[in-house]
């Protein structure tokens, strides 16, 4: 039987998965998945500082500060690549390994005597623990603290992606053409990068740095293989991520496995099957 904690866990996972699967669509289309990966690692120093300054979930200002590290990452990568002429893959790799290492050192240096930091939790996340911070007002349960941040973020993502669809679309399809029409490519680029940074920061506690990339890339990549229409890709990505979360969660529950890795493993199986079927049978190139 489902208990209350399961419902809270699943809701948290879905809020993360939905934000990620929408934003990830544009990372996949712009071939910037690895930049997303870099961002998710590089926000670590920011997250650690957020922990140090105050309690993690309540200090939303600090979280925004942490997200600045994410945007900074894209700026550093761009600087190394364009100004110092370092090749792109190395620029990405250098930037995130350094910032991630910095974060780890910060944790180790300041972890002693600071109750706010749980080292392993920051690094790997533990979805099963997010229900601990319940918000109860007037005797009624309203959710958890992390949901209170993830929900508004999802709303912002939804508004940006669906209301600002044309901007993300034209920028992802052909940024140079958009520029000749006087459209600010910088705005759409940094809008995407900021949202990706925010979602990785907020997901840290629940799924950790490495697995959040899974939510960003796997469902959108699966949807990309199956559709020929951008709106359908966004919707399909949502559907697939929902499926992954539900199946993954209950599998993990049943076999007593770590939750978020199981969810990503399930999504891995889904894309694996999609690829196998497509390679072996050309009739299934696209379905919608």
């Amino acid at each position: 039987m489902l208990n209350l904690n399961d419902i809270l866990n699943i809701s948290t996972a879905l809020l993360i998965a939905w934000s990620c699967s929408l934003l990830g669509v544009f990372l996949v289309l712009r071939k910037m998945v690895m930049v997303g990966d870099a961002i998710s690692h590089s926000v670590l120093p920011g997250v650690v500082m957020a922990f140090l300054v105050g309690s993690y979930s309540s200090s939303s200002f600090i979280l925004i500060g942490a997200a600045v590290f994410g945007v900074l990452t894209t700026i550093i990568i761009d600087f190394l690549y364009r100004k110092l002429k370092l090749q792109e893959d190395a620029s990405i790799g250098l930037t995130f390994t350094w910032l991630f290492a910095l974060g780890v050192i910060l944790i180790t240096v300041f972890a002693d005597g600071n109750s706010h930091i749980d080292k392993d939790c920051v690094l790997f996340g533990e979805l099963g623990l997010t229900f601990l911070d319940k918000i109860i007002i007037g005797g009624r349960l309203w959710g958890t603290k992390s949901m209170m941040l993830l929900l508004p973020l999802l709303l912002i993502v939804v508004v940006f992606v669906f209301k600002g669809f044309k901007g993300f679309q034209i920028h992802a399809f052909q940024a140079e053409y958009a520029q000749t029409k006087g459209i600010s490519t910088g705005f759409w680029h940094y809008a995407l990068m900021t949202l990706v940074s925010l979602v990785t920061v907020l997901s840290f506690e629940s799924v950790g740095a490495i697995l959040v990339v899974g939510f960003l890339v796997v469902p959108p990549a699966t949807a990309y293989l199956l559709t020929k229409n951008l709106r359908n890709m966004l919707l399909l990505s949502l559907v697939i991520s929902t499926f992954d979360v539900l199946v993954g969660y209950f599998t993990a529950l049943h076999f007593d496995l770590a939750i978020s890795p199981t969810i990503i493993t399930v999504s891995g199986l889904v894309i694996f099957l999609t690829i196998v079927v497509q390679i072996t049978n050309s009739r299934f190139k696209t379905v919608v």
């Binding site: 697995l211 990339v213 960003l216 890339v217 990549a221 978020s260 890795p261 199981t262 999504s267």
Partner: peptide
Amino acid sequence: SAIGLVTTIYFAFGSV
């Protein structure tokens, strides 16, 4: 995308 997929799926699989 391929690199991103492989990195995260293998790692998740290992964590499981």
